[in-house]
Amino acid sequence: MTTRKRKLLGTILFLIVVSIVVLNLGFFFEKPRGDVSHDDGSVGDTPVGVWDDQEPTVARLDPALLTAVREASKDAEADGITFRVTSGWRSRAYQRKLLDEAVEKYGSPTEARRWVSTPEKSRHVVGKAIDIGPTDASYWLARYGARYGLCQVYVNEIWHYELLTVPGGTCPRMLTDGAS
Protein backbone atom coordinates (compact mmCIF):
# COMPACT_ATOMS: atom_id res chain seq x y z
CA MET A 1 0.00 0.00 0.00
CA THR A 2 1.38 3.38 -0.95
CA THR A 3 1.84 6.24 1.45
CA ARG A 4 -0.85 8.20 -0.33
CA LYS A 5 -3.38 5.35 0.04
CA ARG A 6 -2.48 4.97 3.74
CA LYS A 7 -3.05 8.69 4.33
CA LEU A 8 -6.37 8.52 2.50
CA LEU A 9 -7.46 5.44 4.48
CA GLY A 10 -6.32 7.12 7.72
CA THR A 11 -8.31 10.27 6.86
CA ILE A 12 -11.42 8.22 6.07
CA LEU A 13 -11.12 6.26 9.33
CA PHE A 14 -10.58 9.48 11.26
CA LEU A 15 -13.71 11.03 9.72
CA ILE A 16 -15.73 7.91 10.53
CA VAL A 17 -14.61 7.99 14.17
CA VAL A 18 -15.33 11.73 14.46
CA SER A 19 -18.78 11.21 12.92
CA ILE A 20 -19.58 8.44 15.38
CA VAL A 21 -18.46 10.58 18.33
CA VAL A 22 -20.45 13.63 17.16
CA LEU A 23 -23.60 11.58 16.57
CA ASN A 24 -23.36 10.09 20.06
CA LEU A 25 -22.64 13.31 21.98
CA GLY A 26 -26.35 13.72 22.57
CA PHE A 27 -26.36 10.45 24.50
CA PHE A 28 -23.77 11.79 26.93
CA PHE A 29 -25.18 15.28 27.34
CA GLU A 30 -28.91 14.78 26.98
CA LYS A 31 -30.78 15.26 30.23
CA PRO A 32 -32.82 12.25 31.24
CA ARG A 33 -36.47 12.66 30.38
CA GLY A 34 -37.97 9.47 31.64
CA ASP A 35 -41.61 9.00 32.25
CA VAL A 36 -43.36 11.02 34.87
CA SER A 37 -46.12 9.65 36.96
CA HIS A 38 -49.05 10.67 39.06
CA ASP A 39 -46.59 11.04 41.97
CA ASP A 40 -44.72 13.72 39.99
CA GLY A 41 -47.87 15.84 39.83
CA SER A 42 -48.99 14.77 36.38
CA VAL A 43 -52.74 14.71 35.86
CA GLY A 44 -52.45 13.43 32.31
CA ASP A 45 -55.33 14.47 30.11
CA THR A 46 -57.83 14.52 32.97
CA PRO A 47 -57.83 17.68 35.10
CA VAL A 48 -58.71 17.19 38.76
CA GLY A 49 -60.86 19.09 41.22
CA VAL A 50 -59.51 21.60 43.73
CA TRP A 51 -60.75 19.35 46.54
CA ASP A 52 -58.95 16.20 45.29
CA ASP A 53 -56.48 15.89 48.17
CA GLN A 54 -55.34 12.44 47.05
CA GLU A 55 -53.83 14.07 43.94
CA PRO A 56 -50.21 15.14 44.54
CA THR A 57 -50.66 18.08 42.15
CA VAL A 58 -53.28 19.44 44.60
CA ALA A 59 -52.11 18.01 47.93
CA ARG A 60 -48.57 19.41 47.61
CA LEU A 61 -49.65 22.97 46.86
CA ASP A 62 -48.75 25.69 49.31
CA PRO A 63 -51.57 25.69 51.91
CA ALA A 64 -52.29 29.43 51.54
CA LEU A 65 -52.54 29.11 47.74
CA LEU A 66 -54.79 26.08 48.01
CA THR A 67 -57.08 27.81 50.52
CA ALA A 68 -57.42 30.85 48.25
CA VAL A 69 -58.16 28.68 45.20
CA ARG A 70 -60.77 26.70 47.12
CA GLU A 71 -62.49 29.87 48.34
CA ALA A 72 -62.56 31.25 44.80
CA SER A 73 -63.83 27.90 43.54
CA LYS A 74 -66.80 28.00 45.94
CA ASP A 75 -67.80 31.45 44.71
CA ALA A 76 -67.28 30.49 41.07
CA GLU A 77 -69.59 27.48 41.60
CA ALA A 78 -72.32 29.94 42.63
CA ASP A 79 -71.86 31.51 39.18
CA GLY A 80 -72.09 28.09 37.50
CA ILE A 81 -68.31 27.83 36.93
CA THR A 82 -66.34 24.73 37.93
CA PHE A 83 -62.59 24.98 38.51
CA ARG A 84 -60.41 22.13 37.32
CA VAL A 85 -56.72 21.90 38.16
CA THR A 86 -54.83 21.25 34.94
CA SER A 87 -51.54 21.48 36.83
CA GLY A 88 -50.48 22.42 40.32
CA TRP A 89 -47.44 21.15 42.17
CA ARG A 90 -44.91 19.41 39.91
CA SER A 91 -41.75 17.49 40.68
CA ARG A 92 -38.44 18.78 39.30
CA ALA A 93 -38.36 15.77 36.94
CA TYR A 94 -41.80 16.59 35.57
CA GLN A 95 -40.87 20.26 35.12
CA ARG A 96 -37.69 19.21 33.28
CA LYS A 97 -39.71 16.95 31.01
CA LEU A 98 -42.15 19.75 30.22
CA LEU A 99 -39.27 22.09 29.40
CA ASP A 100 -37.57 19.50 27.20
CA GLU A 101 -40.82 18.93 25.33
CA ALA A 102 -41.27 22.68 24.88
CA VAL A 103 -37.75 22.99 23.43
CA GLU A 104 -38.65 20.29 20.90
CA LYS A 105 -41.97 21.99 20.11
CA TYR A 106 -40.71 25.58 19.85
CA GLY A 107 -37.24 24.85 18.45
CA SER A 108 -35.07 26.60 21.02
CA PRO A 109 -34.62 26.94 24.79
CA THR A 110 -35.23 30.69 24.54
CA GLU A 111 -38.61 30.29 22.83
CA ALA A 112 -39.57 27.36 25.09
CA ARG A 113 -38.96 29.44 28.23
CA ARG A 114 -41.70 31.81 27.13
CA TRP A 115 -44.10 28.99 28.03
CA VAL A 116 -42.28 26.65 30.45
CA SER A 117 -39.92 27.61 33.22
CA THR A 118 -36.82 25.75 34.32
CA PRO A 119 -37.11 23.46 37.36
CA GLU A 120 -34.97 25.95 39.29
CA LYS A 121 -37.33 28.88 38.62
CA SER A 122 -40.73 27.22 38.34
CA ARG A 123 -43.25 28.25 40.96
CA HIS A 124 -45.04 24.94 40.31
CA VAL A 125 -42.07 22.97 41.68
CA VAL A 126 -42.40 24.72 45.04
CA GLY A 127 -46.21 24.45 45.05
CA LYS A 128 -46.82 28.18 44.63
CA ALA A 129 -48.51 28.15 41.21
CA ILE A 130 -51.64 26.56 39.84
CA ASP A 131 -53.09 26.24 36.35
CA ILE A 132 -56.88 26.45 36.25
CA GLY A 133 -59.23 25.37 33.48
CA PRO A 134 -61.45 25.18 31.58
CA THR A 135 -61.39 28.52 29.80
CA ASP A 136 -64.51 29.88 31.51
CA ALA A 137 -62.91 29.18 34.91
CA SER A 138 -59.67 30.87 33.84
CA TYR A 139 -61.58 33.94 32.72
CA TRP A 140 -63.62 33.98 35.93
CA LEU A 141 -60.41 33.89 37.94
CA ALA A 142 -58.84 36.60 35.78
CA ARG A 143 -61.80 38.82 36.61
CA TYR A 144 -62.26 38.02 40.31
CA GLY A 145 -59.00 36.41 41.46
CA ALA A 146 -57.64 39.48 43.27
CA ARG A 147 -60.54 39.18 45.72
CA TYR A 148 -58.76 36.04 46.95
CA GLY A 149 -55.18 37.25 46.42
CA LEU A 150 -54.89 35.21 43.21
CA CYS A 151 -53.26 36.88 40.24
CA GLN A 152 -52.69 35.91 36.64
CA VAL A 153 -48.92 36.17 36.22
CA TYR A 154 -48.35 36.05 32.45
CA VAL A 155 -50.25 37.77 29.66
CA ASN A 156 -49.86 34.68 27.47
CA GLU A 157 -51.10 32.21 30.12
CA ILE A 158 -54.69 32.89 31.16
CA TRP A 159 -54.64 29.64 33.17
CA HIS A 160 -51.59 30.34 35.43
CA TYR A 161 -52.25 31.86 38.87
CA GLU A 162 -50.19 32.62 41.94
CA LEU A 163 -50.97 34.14 45.33
CA LEU A 164 -49.40 37.58 44.79
CA THR A 165 -51.48 40.03 46.78
CA VAL A 166 -53.61 40.16 49.89
CA PRO A 167 -57.27 39.29 49.39
CA GLY A 168 -58.94 42.32 47.84
CA GLY A 169 -55.55 43.83 46.95
CA THR A 170 -54.19 44.84 43.60
CA CYS A 171 -52.36 42.31 41.47
CA PRO A 172 -48.95 43.29 40.14
CA ARG A 173 -48.61 44.10 36.48
CA MET A 174 -48.53 40.92 34.41
CA LEU A 175 -45.37 39.79 32.73
CA THR A 176 -45.45 39.33 28.97
CA ASP A 177 -44.46 35.66 29.30
CA GLY A 178 -42.32 33.29 31.35
CA ALA A 179 -39.13 34.61 29.79
CA SER A 180 -39.84 38.18 30.96
Rank of each mutant, 00 (worst) to 15 (best):
G88M: 03
L25T: 13
K31T: 07
D39G: 09
T86F: 00
L150Y: 03
A102Q: 02
T110F: 09
G34S: 06
T11Q: 09
H160E: 08
T110N: 08
I20T: 15
W140Y: 14
S19E: 13
T170P: 01
P47Q: 07
V126Y: 09
R6I: 11
K7S: 03
A137K: 02
K121H: 10
I158D: 08
A102H: 03
Y161P: 03
L164C: 03
R84F: 06
Y94C: 00
V85S: 00
G10T: 10
H38W: 11
A142S: 09
I12A: 08
S42I: 00
A129M: 09
A68N: 10
G169T: 13
S138P: 10
I158H: 08
V126C: 07
R4S: 14
W51K: 14
S87D: 04
G107M: 05
V22Q: 14
H124V: 02
K97R: 13
E71H: 15
A129F: 03
E157Y: 07
P63L: 12
L65Q: 07
L163A: 10
W51L: 13
A102E: 05
Y148A: 02
A72C: 14
L23D: 09
T11H: 07
A72P: 07
E157C: 02
A72S: 13
T11F: 11
R114S: 03
E30M: 13
P32Y: 14
T3S: 06
G127R: 00
V116C: 04
S138N: 05
R84A: 04
R70T: 06
D79T: 06
R113T: 12
G168Q: 05
L61W: 06
A76G: 11
G169W: 09
V58S: 05
R33Q: 12
Y94V: 00
L66D: 01
R60M: 05
A146F: 11
V50A: 07
D177A: 13
A129I: 02
V116P: 00
R84V: 05
I81D: 02
A179Y: 15
S117H: 06
D79N: 15
A68Y: 10
W51T: 15
W159T: 10
I158C: 02
T11M: 12
T110M: 06
E120W: 10
G80V: 05
E71I: 04
S42C: 05
D45L: 05
E71Q: 15
A146T: 08
D40H: 03
T135W: 12
